[in-house]
């Protein structure tokens, strides 16, 4: 069972030979392939992450732009509304003033005409009252 002979060194030499051959045909190429794959995956991964970051940045930028635009639109609407209100108020005031003016004018005219009519009536008061008198009391009494 324990007989050592030339098998021992020959086995050692054979084993070293096997290590050398396997190193060439097995370990080196497969290790290279594994490393290459690792590299490939890592590169792809970083690239994808970069792209993702870029996409997120772009999305953020767009969102910001969108918000800006919305704010601008709102301010435009607000100014337009304010302007419209101002114009409306102005016009309303003007119209009111005009109406007031016309009203006053009409009032004046009315007053004037009333005055004229009153004057005319006053001038006719004497005659009219005489006439009324004659009608009531008869001609003899009136004269």
């Amino acid at each position: 069972m324990f007989d050592f002979d030339a098998t021992l060194p020959l086995m050692a030499a054979q084993f070293l030979l096997l290590v050398a051959i396997l190193n060439q045909v097995f370990y080196k190429p497969l290790t290279k392939s594994l490393d290459d794959r690792d590299n490939y995956i890592r590169t792809n991964n970083t690239e994808a992450q970069e792209r993702l970051a870029k996409a997120q940045r772009l999305a953020q930028q767009y969102e910001q732009e969108l918000a800006n635009t919305r704010r601008q639109a709102q301010s435009v609407i607000a100014t337009a509304q304010a302007e419209a209100q101002k114009t409306a108020a102005q016009e309303l005031a003007e119209v009111q003033r005009e109406v007031q003016a016309q009203f006053q004018q009409v009032q004046q005219e009315l007053d004037q005409q009333k005055q004229v009519a009153l004057q005319a009536l006053e001038s006719q008061v004497g005659t009219l009252s005489r006439q009324i008198l004659t009608k009531l009391l008869g001609t003899e009494l009136a004269s």
Binding site: F4, D5, T7, L8, M11, A12
Partner: peptide, 11 residues
């Protein structure tokens, strides 16, 4: 065979 294992161990 002990020769093999001793060879490997010595290596």
């Amino acid at each position: 065979d002990i020769n093999t294992t001793v060879a490997l161990a010595l290596l």
